[in-house]
Design a protein around this nucleic acid. Structure first.
Length: 482
RNA sequence: GGUCCCAUCGUCUAGGGGUUAGGACACCGGCCUCUCACGUCGGGAACGCGGGUUCGAAUCCCGCUGGGAUCACCA
C-alpha cells in the first residue's frame, strides 16, 4: 500500500502555525514513506471562505517549501466543486435508511441543548426525528424543497467504535454516546464530517494525520465510512500547540500566522525545524535540514502531549540558520527588509555582503539585521546623547584628529590590518589602550556604544564616511555641553 | 456537566523495570575581548500525588489530582 496523506485547511483566515504543523507532519510522513501528499481545500462554508485566505495558504506553504503532489489549482481538490458527489452519497444513505431527514429548526435544537444543559444531561441531539417515516427518494435539502429540513446520519446506538490511533494508541467510544450528526444542512450544503469522509475515500487517503482536536470526530467519520461500505483510513492525531498560558494557540497569543513570521524576518527552514521538533524528536538532535526531517520522521517518534509554543527557541533556530546561510543568499534576503525600513543600499551586492558578514552573528532575524545595518546605510547618523556624553569628551579630540589623519593617509589601503596599525600608532602616541580609543570611535561612526569590531566597521564603512563622521564627532567633542 | 486525550527541569524533549535521569532553549557564572554578540567552559533546574505489582518503579497496573480537547445547520 502506498502511503497517501492529506492536509485540508479551510480558507477562512490566515494559515496558522499550529494548524500548519499538522500539515507539515502529514507531508513529512508521506515523503518519508515515499508516498504522496494531497492538499485539499475545505471550502464548503462559502460564507466564510475567501480568495485572500486561499492565496495566503498557498503562498505560506510555498514559502515553507511544503509541496503537494495533488491539489490546487486542480479544481477537483476543492470541496466546493464536489457537491454532486456529496449529494449522490447522501441520497444513497437516505435510500438505504442510513440517514434521515430532520425537521427540527436551529432554534429548537438550540433550546433543546440549553434545556439538557440545565438538567445536567448530555447536550446532544435526542433523535426525535430518527424514526419518522420518510420517502426513500426524498429530495435533498435545498432552495427547491418546500419544507426546511436537514439530513442526519443514523448512527448505531449499540456497541463501540474503536480508533487505533497511530500516535495516541487505542481510544474507545461508546456508540450510545454518539448522537446523529447533520450531514446535509437545510441550505443543501454538506457538513464537514460528511464531506471529509467522501474526500478521504475518493482521494484514496491512507493516513489521516491531523490535530487531536479532531479525535472526537473520528468515530463518527469511521461510522460514515462503514455505512458507505468503505474501509476507514489509518488515523494519527497529533497533540495541539498551546500558547504560553497553556490554552490552544490563537491570535491572542500574538503572532501566529506563517505570514507574520515571514514578515518578521524568519527563515522558512527555521520555522519548519522548530515546528517539526515541537511534538516530535529524534534522539538528542535539535537541528534538522528538510532532507533530514524527511529521512527521520516517523509517527512513532511523535509525543502524545500538547506542547507550548516557545518563541525563544524559534528565535535561536532562526539565528542558527542565519549564521549558516551562504552570505550571498542572506544578503539578498535582507534587502527587502532594508527597503521596508525606508533605507537604500549605497553600494553593490558585494558591499552588502560585507555589511551582512559583520552583523549576522548579532541579529536573530532578517529584520533585526536590517535594523542593525542602519549605521552603514544612512548618510547621516544620530549620535546617542548618553554615548556622546560618556565618550566624546574634549580629551579625546586630539587622538581622534590624529586617527583621522592616519586613516586619510591609508589612502587606497583601507583594509582591516592597515586600520589596526593606524590605531596602534595613535595608541602608542597617547599611551592609550584600545578600549579607550575604540569606544569613542565607535560612537562617532555608529552613533552608539554597540557594534561589530571597530576595524571591520571602518573597513566596510569606507574612507569617506568614516572620515566625515570622525570629523563631525571631533567637532562635537570640542564643544562640550552644546 | 458528558465523552475523549494527556502528565520527566520554566519550555521542547531523551530514557520505558536497576541511569550520578541525558540533550536543547531560556537563565546564572568563568574564559575570550575594542563594545555588543558569537564561541567556549561550568552551574542551578524535572519524573504531579496515593496505592499496588516487583528483590527493585520515572518506567507496568489502578485510583486521585491537574491540564487540554470536544460536545454547531464551523471546519
Amino acid at each position: 500500500m502506498t502511503v497517501r496523506t492529506r492536509y485540508a485547511p479551510s480558507p477562512t483566515g490566515a494559515l496558522h502555525i499550529g494548524n500548519v504543523r499538522s500539515g507539515l507532519f502529514a507531508y513529512l510522513y508521506a515523503r518519508h514513506c515515499g508516498g504522496s501528499f494531497v492538499l485539499r481545500i475545505d471550502d464548503t462554508d462559502q460564507e466564510r471562505s475567501t480568495k485572500e485566505s486561499l492565496d495566503e495558504i498557498l503562498q505560506s506553504l510555498a514559502w515553507l517549501g511544503i509541496e503537494w503532489d495533488d491539489g490546487p489549482p486542480d479544481p477537483k481538490y476543492f470541496q466546493s466543486t464536489r457537491f454532486d458527489r456529496y449529494r449522490e452519497a447522501a441520497r444513497r444513505l437516505l435510500r438505504e435508511g442510513k440517514a434521515y431527514p430532520c425537521y427540527c429548526t436551529a432554534g429548537e435544537l438550540d433550546a433543546m441543548r440549553k434545556q439538557a444543559e440545565r438538567e445536567h444531561r448530555k447536550p446532544g441531539y435526542d433523535g426525535r426525528c430518527r424514526d419518522l417515516p420518510f420517502a426513500a427518494d426524498i429530495e435533498l435539502p435545498g432552495a427547491n424543497a418546500d419544507r426546511k429540513y436537514t439530513i442526519r446520519f443514523r448512527s448505531p446506538h449499540e456497541g463501540e467504535t474503536v480508533v487505533e490511533d497511530l500516535v495516541k494508541g487505542r481510544a474507545v467510544f461508546d456508540n450510545a454516546e454518539l448522537d446523529d450528526l447533520i450531514i446535509f444542512r437545510s441550505d443543501g450544503v454538506p457538513t464537514y464530517n460528511f464531506a471529509t469522509v467522501l474526500d478521504d475515500a475518493d482521494f484514496q487517503i491512507t493516513h489521516v494525520i491531523r490535530g487531536d482536536d479532531h479525535l472526537p470526530n473520528t468515530p463518527r467519520q469511521m461510522q460514515i465510512f462503514l455505512a458507505l461500505g468503505l474501509t476507514p483510513p489509518a488515523y494519527a492525531h497529533l497533540p495541539m500547540v498551546m500558547g504560553h498560558d497553556g490554552s490552544k494557540l490563537s491570535k491572542r497569543h500574538g503572532a501566529t500566522s506563517v505570514f507574520a513570521y515571514r514578515d518578521a524576518g524568519y527563515l522558512p527552514a527555521a520555522l519548519i525545524n522548530y515546528l517539526a521538533r515541537l511534538g516530535w524528536s529524534h534522539g538528542d538532535q535539535e537541528v534538522f535540514s528538510p532532507a533530514e526531517l524527511i529521512q527521520f520522521f516517523d509517527l512513532n517518534d511523535c509525543g502524545k502531549s500538547a506542547g507550548i509554543f516557545n518563541p525563544e527557541k524559534l528565535l535561536w533556530l532562526n539565528f542558527h540558520y542565519m549564521k549558516e546561510r551562504p552570505l550571498d543568499l542572506l544578503a539578498r534576503e535582507v534587502r527587502p527588509f532594508i527597503e521596508k525600513r525606508g533605507m537604500q543600499v549605497p553600494g553593490d551586492d558585494a558591499w552588502l555582503e560585507r555589511v551582512v558578514a559583520t552583523l549576522r552573528e548579532r541579529a536573530k532575524t532578517l529584520d533585526e539585521l536590517a535594523e542593525f545595518a542602519g549605521f552603514y546605510l544612512r548618510d547621516e547618523i544620530q549620535i546617542e546623547a548618553k554615548a556622546a556624553a560618556k565618550f566624546l569628551k574634549p580629551d579625546i579630540v586630539e587622538p581622534l584628529r590624529v586617527l583621522a589623519s592616519e586613516l586619510d593617509s591609508l589612502d587606497g589601503n583601507f583594509k582591516e590590518e592597515a586600520i589596526k596599525q593606524a590605531f596602534e600608532r595613535v595608541m602608542d602616541r597617547y599611551q592609550m589602550k584600545l578600549g579607550q580609543l575604540a569606544q569613542p570611535v565607535r560612537v562617532a561612526l555608529t552613533g552608539g556604544t554597540v557594534s561589530p569590531g571597530i576595524f571591520e566597521v571602518i573597513a566596510v564603512l569606507g574612507a569617506e564616511r568614516s572620515g566625515a563622521r570622525l570629523r563631525k564627532a571631533i567637532q562635537q567633542a570640542s564643544q562640550p555641553g552644546s
